[in-house]
Computed example of a mutant assay.
Amino acid sequence: MRAGKLRDRVTLRGARHGHPPAWPDAGQAWAEFVEPRSAGRTEQQGIRAPASTLVRMRPRPGLVPGMLIERPDGALFIIEAIDPARTMVEIAARRLQGVPAQYVPFATGIGYSIDAWLVRNNVFVGEANEPRHLVEVIQPQLAWPWCERGDLIQIAGLSLEIVGQVEGTDDGLTVQLFTIPG
């Protein structure tokens, strides 16, 4: 393998653990990213990109599916599969991507940038007949404590107040939230 192809210095992160939640640093590596190029790409339906990205790097111990790869530009990838070889490792990774949004914790009122995805618009009617929206967020981008009732997400020209978490959607990387216009 020619080292000249490995142009991005990436940070590897382990699975979420602890309280407050953290994704432990598992080291750094040089990597090459080969983005999917398909004329018939499917449309994005959530935070995870519709197609896998090929990531190449030198073999290293402890590399397992479920780890995160963080590129210098802030892009996050979740490792789905690893094909080890003698001189390099080929990884199928799914990019975690959304649209620019602001997360505003109720406690501080100070917003910060995140990527989020408006999964469904006006899908449910809440207790007071208000429309509810479903928003998916990337957990490693959030400052603890997160997803508390009263926090705001500003996305796609909407200001949405968090009223709850969708049961069963916390996979250690993303979570879906019920929101109402805030």
Rank of each mutant, 00 (worst) to 15 (best):
D151H: 08
I162N: 00
L142Y: 06
A92I: 03
P59W: 10
W146I: 04
R95K: 14
Q45N: 09
R71Y: 05
V64G: 03
V10E: 00
P24C: 08
W144Q: 08
G66V: 08
R132H: 08
V104R: 05
E127C: 03
Q176S: 12
R2D: 15
A116Y: 02
A29V: 08
F33A: 08
P65T: 11
A15T: 15
G150R: 10
G98A: 11
S52L: 13
S52K: 04
E32D: 08
A39G: 15
V64A: 07
R16A: 11
A101W: 01
G27W: 07
D151G: 08
P24T: 11
L54H: 08
Y103P: 00
R71L: 12
V119P: 01
P84A: 06
G62E: 04
V10P: 02
A3Y: 13
A3P: 01
I79R: 02
P181M: 09
P50C: 10
L68W: 03
H133S: 05
K5E: 14
A31C: 07
P105V: 11
V89R: 01
T108A: 10
D73Q: 10
I153G: 00
I162Q: 00
D83V: 13
T108S: 15
G74C: 11
A101P: 06
F178P: 00
Q176H: 11
L173P: 00
H17L: 14
S38M: 14
V175D: 03
R120T: 05
L134D: 00
P181L: 08
R86F: 14
R37A: 14
R60K: 15
N129T: 05
I138F: 09
V125H: 09
R94W: 06
L96R: 02
D171F: 14
L96Y: 03
Q97W: 07
D8S: 13
I47Q: 00
R95E: 15
A116D: 02
S52F: 09
L142D: 03
R37Y: 12
R86L: 13
G62W: 09
G126D: 15
P84C: 05
